[in-house]
């Protein structure tokens, strides 16, 4: 643990690029009024915070032009809304499925999954620099505040071989600011997502999770559950997990992630 004196010194080191930068750490930080700067201005500047969303449900960022699903004239709040009104085409499609007629999965992300964030997440997940999680864990907790009362916080579990390979579950570290319950376990190991089309992915995720022993013990009925994860791509993983919890009686399941991938990037 570093002391407050270290934080007040003139220079900091960037958690991502390791470069020294002069931190604007001052009395506001010491009094807890501002956050400690972990990234240098250059790295910080490359993150695209989602300030307005194009869909009340999945929280996709509004800025991409020419995206068929998004009406760029509609700008929605970046925080959770209690009554989703405007839905993108993806989310409307989900809503047509029987099991999603009476349930929802509201999601918000901190940032757009741009090139820079892809690099950062690769360093975090694949290179295994677990410290990167501290960049986001506090912010995720803040983001979740607008969701209102949350009874249980959980994460998407990793398959055993993947967990061994990485040494840690990235989602669990991202949820570091919450008290995490392990509600789910994986039933089958799914193939790499990117290899399948939407339909194939959905089929593969059908029944990918079941309740864990801890989840069984914990009475979910009437509870609002928050899932913390790293990246939201199509939402199918999160929905697969959420449907297990709805079956167990959860009244609402919501999700926060670090990065919202959009069609534009995934092509």
């Amino acid at each position: 643990m570093t002391s407050w004196r270290d934080h007040l010194s003139e220079t900091n080191r960037c958690l991502y690029c390791h470069e020294v930068f002069s931190g604007e750490v001052n009395w506001t930080w010491a009094l807890g009024l501002s956050e400690e700067k972990l990234l240098c201005p250059a790295c910080e500047g490359k993150l695209e915070e989602i300030k307005e969303t194009g869909c009340d449900m999945c929280g996709r960022p509004v800025e991409q032009e020419g995206h068929e699903f998004v009406d760029s004239t509609v700008k929605r709040s970046a925080s959770f809304v209690s009554k989703p009104q405007f839905l993108c085409r993806d989310c409307s499609r989900w809503g047509e499925e029987d099991r999603w007629k009476n349930h929802s999965l509201k999601h918000r992300a901190l940032y757009s999954y741009n090139d820079f964030l892809q690099e950062v997440m690769a360093t975090f997940k694949y290179r295994g620099d677990a410290e990167i999680a501290t960049l986001f864990s506090g912010k995720l907790k803040k983001l979740a505040k607008s969701a209102g009362r949350i009874d249980v916080v959980t994460v998407i579990p990793l398959a055993d071989d993947r967990l061994w390979e990485r040494g840690f579950n990235q989602a669990e570290l991202l949820a570091g600011a919450f008290r995490v319950r392990h509600l789910l376990v994986r039933t089958v190991s799914t193939e790499k997502q990117s290899k399948r089309d939407r339909r194939g992915r959905m089929a593969a995720l059908e029944g990918a999770f079941r309740m864990s022993e801890e989840g069984e013990r914990l009475e979910l009925s009437g509870k609002r559950v928050l899932i913390v994860d790293d990246i939201y791509t199509t939402g199918s993983t999160l929905r697969s997990a959420a449907s297990v919890m709805y079956e167990a009686g959860a009244v609402e399941v919501l999700a926060v992630t670090v990065a919202r991938a959009t069609g534009k990037l995934k092509k």
Binding site: G128, D129, E131, W164, F168
Partner: peptide, 19 residues
């Protein structure tokens, strides 16, 4: 850095300089 390591099942330090 330091993680609760899934391999050695304890607190495990790692080098960030040669990741």
């Amino acid at each position: 850095g330091k993680i609760q390591c899934a391999r050695c099942r304890q607190s495990c330090r790692y080098c960030r300089a040669c990741l």
